[in-house]
């Protein structure tokens, strides 16, 4: 298997944020709507849902969907106002 230098750096960085307990993608998905609502209400969801914050830091597809959800909800609210 061919491994790039940048990959070795990414692996090392991923080890610095590896926790014993982590959420899977489905577990994160189950919580993300509550997390997003809290965030949009000006609360600090990362304080009460740190595992969700951790998962979206580590998992690009879940982070992508989280960011897209924020954009979508902003647009809906703008249209309804």
């Amino acid at each position: 298997m061919k491994i790039e230098i940048t990959t070795l750096k990414k692996v090392l960085k991923s080890l610095t944020i590896t926790e014993v307990e982590e959420l899977t993608c489905s577990e994160c998905f189950n919580e993300i709507d509550q997390y997003v609502d809290m965030l949009r209400e000006g609360k600090s969801p990362a304080d009460v849902m740190p595992l969700v914050k951790h998962h979206i830091t580590l998992c690009p597809p879940c982070r992508e969907e989280f960011e897209a959800l924020l954009v979508a909800l902003e647009a809906i609210d703008a249209d309804l106002e």
Partner: peptide, 16 residues
């Protein structure tokens, strides 16, 4: 969560 947030997360997940 708000129902619309829950529904929209499903739509985003389907699309992405």
């Amino acid at each position: 969560s708000r129902f619309t947030t829950w529904a929209q997360k499903i739509a985003i997940h389907v699309a992405y």
